[in-house]
Computed example of a mutant assay.
Amino acid sequence: MSDPITGVVAGGVHRAYQAGKAVPADPTVVRPGPSFTEMLARTATETVETVRQGDRTALAGLTGTLPVQQVVEATMAMESAVQVTVAVRDRVVEAYQEILRMSV
């Protein structure tokens, strides 16, 4: 059985690779793209939707309208989304604390 985070990381690596292919070979050419804030907001929206879908699936599983396999898959996707979000939050907090420790 594979680690659920591995799938999320692999998906992120694939998206980064696809985004990198769109970067022009000439570094003087600048293509407009989503800002860091827009990418972060989109990722947060996708995470919230994953958690909501997991909740809906769990409720449907409790009522017996969905098989256990789908409930487990949705729960694992929800868990991995939350783990990645917490890891990103931890890194942001660490970076902020490092900035606060810098002498001016």
Rank of each mutant, 00 (worst) to 15 (best):
V29W: 10
Q69E: 14
A60T: 01
A74G: 07
R52K: 11
A77V: 01
T65K: 08
E49G: 01
R52P: 00
M76Q: 12
T65E: 13
Q70I: 00
P32S: 13
E46W: 12
G54N: 07
M39T: 15
Q70F: 04
T47E: 08
E46Y: 04
V71E: 07
A41F: 04
V29E: 14
D55K: 12
V30P: 06
G33A: 15
R52S: 11
A74V: 05
V51L: 14
T65Y: 09
R52H: 09
Q53C: 00
E38V: 03
T50I: 09
T45S: 10
P67L: 03
P32R: 13
G64K: 07
E49W: 03
R31S: 10
P34Y: 12
P32M: 09
L59G: 01
T57P: 01
L40E: 10
R42T: 12
V48C: 03
T75M: 06
A74N: 02
V68C: 00
R56S: 08
V51P: 03
F36V: 10
T45Y: 05
G61N: 02
T57M: 10
G61F: 05
E38C: 07
V72C: 03
L62A: 09
G61I: 01
V68P: 00
T47W: 02
T37P: 00
P67T: 03
S80K: 06
R31A: 13
T45W: 01
M76D: 08
V51H: 05
A60C: 00
A77Q: 09
A81G: 05
V68R: 12
R31G: 13
M78K: 08
E46H: 08
P67I: 02
L66N: 10
T57D: 07
Q53P: 00
R56H: 11
V48A: 14
T47Q: 11
A58R: 07
